[in-house]
Amino acid sequence: MAVVRSRIKTLKIDGQDVGAHEDETILEVARENGIMIPTLCQLDGLSLVGACRLCLVEVVGWRNLVPACTTYVEEGMEVITNSERLQKYRRMIIELLFAEGNHVCAVCVSNGNCELQWKAQKLGMDHVRFTNQNPDRRVDMTHEHFVVDANRCILCTRCVRVCDEIEGAHTWDIFGRGENSTIISDFNLPWGESPTCSSCGKCVNVCPTGALVEKGKAAGEMIKRTEFLAYLTKMREVKK
């Protein structure tokens, strides 16, 4: 008799026994079971990049921490999502982001509706020990409806991915290397002059911070809506 391979895996996440399909990642299974792992670059409906490192988890017996978003489940795996060590690392990563950019919540249109701010609150990052880099990056108001303030950008690349993968325009991309990386529209044209931008606003809605916002909003008024992404993903799956 042929040996049948099970496509269902059982594993433990934070001591809780869970079942999963072999095509699921640790992050997906954790969420299904009400275990919340913080993420920033990940967004349902977009490709995975594993860049923000917030969702790093421990797997018992593994030498390295692994990103929950890009690691598939395995039979018998024991995942720890919330150890002290992980919390400390996550806090430090948020702290580094605050030091890198211009994240002054009080004057930001996204104040109160910002994923970076939520993460900082949730992870208990209450002060920044690092030198503020005070970047002097592009603020571009040339677009008819939208504004980009690269000083508030955390380089999660959600805008790049949604524009490329969902809208199909690929207006956004990353320019430069390391700390000089910044988002650009087309070949570093002013956004308002972009020949590829369809002004759909998807990038604005997936942006986790106040880097991409609508014009005419005052502090705290910008509310992002990402529901469209889940809807589009679902509709496209049906079509397949």
Partner: peptide, 21 residues
């Protein structure tokens, strides 16, 4: 390392800068 970091992941992009400082 700081100048050669690609800038994709946060700890390397910002951490090498802070360590250098």
């Amino acid at each position: 390392s700081m100048t050669e970091s690609c800038g994709k992941c946060i700890p390397c992009r910002t951490g090498t800068r802070q360590m250098y400082d």
